[in-house]
Simulated assay, not measured.
Amino acid sequence: MESEHRILIVDDDPVNLDIMLEILASEYSCAAASTGEDALKTEKAFRPDIILLDIMMPGMDGYEVCRRIRAGETHRFTKIILVSGKSMTEDRLKGYEVGADDYITKPFNDDELLAKIKVFLKLKRLEEVDSVKRDIINIFSHETRTPLSAIVGPAEMLLENEHLDRESRELAELILQGAKQIADLVHKTTMLCRLKSGFKLRMTDFQASECLNEALRKKQREAAAKNITIKTDIISDSMITGDREALTEALTMLMENAVIYSRDNSEISVRILYEQGTAVFSVEDCGEGLDDETKSTIFGDFSITGSRRHIKGMGIGLSIVKHIAEMHGGGAEALDSECGGAVFRLSVPCKGGRL
């Protein structure tokens, strides 16, 4: 049967090949191979979505076939299910070590085999889509840097011209604001993808106040533009073992969020506390606050809330905060503030607090 899904069946026993072809050929495009060498040749030409791979074969066994396929990048999304009469735990573990995705023991149940194939076809498709998304984001990130620089630089130069008329100045400000928003979105989207794709923390020892001071330096100008006062209170300055740059980025995003949603001429309170073995960064604003539903979803990837507190940048910043906190063994939460706004807390393990 012609199908968009392709399955390669590898077994040195013709009877087993016939059985699996009878089960699968009515729903999927199938190819068969009886040796490990033939399997590798067929795999390159047939490009299967799933390989049902026997282990015990003359010459090259299934383990070696699996290892060779996984050694290349061409078919990294292909799912390999080992099919064997060997049922010992060590046999399964060896299969997983060489790159197999699953293991099914002969004799197998037809319905179980079909169910596994459907699950792994769906998983393969999701992995391929995620890979395409990451590639697009990476390309977008690289390809927009130069054009954005070409927009931001001239716009800033125009605004430095004291003789620029009012209408031209307003247009230049709109251009600069839009370019910076795109640059910010690119930065956050790229960072979120890095965090979700195996980002490795660079661990060092540092004081919690170092993150606060750097984040404050980055956001002081934006706060001043709205005449917002950022009040800091280091109740306990803890020693943290973590990625200083990543935690500073997370705290910066919490401050950015507070500045965006605070009213002009208001105050933001940033505190560092010590609570039961954790350093807690608390950022409190006096904006419009959050409803209970929003508080439970606001840290989700690309979260967009209702009309009261629409998260600019597609909610990416707060998702980044949560990922960074959890990578350090901590967490993030949103609470109500006494002034009617919101309190965002980022907590990470620390070595103890001190004044």
Rank of each mutant, 00 (worst) to 15 (best):
T190Y: 09
N265Y: 07
L8T: 12
T229M: 05
E167G: 06
E37P: 05
I316E: 07
L21A: 08
D110G: 11
E173C: 07
T278R: 11
R67G: 00
E267L: 14
I23N: 12
Q177R: 03
E338W: 00
V321G: 07
R202F: 04
R92C: 00
F302N: 14
V129R: 02
R169K: 13
K124T: 00
R202V: 04
S141F: 13
S131T: 04
A224I: 03
E27G: 11
S87Y: 03
C30D: 01
G331S: 09
D292Q: 13
G198H: 03
V259P: 13
D101P: 03
T78L: 00
G62L: 06
A172Y: 06
A150L: 08
I51E: 14
K196S: 06
Q181K: 09
P147E: 01
D291L: 12
D49W: 01
R309P: 10
D11L: 08
N138G: 13
V10E: 13
I81R: 14
L93A: 03
I298C: 11
S168G: 14
T232D: 03
K86S: 11
P14R: 05
N161F: 11
N213I: 14
T146L: 11
H328P: 01
R92Y: 08
G313M: 12
A334N: 08
H310Y: 13
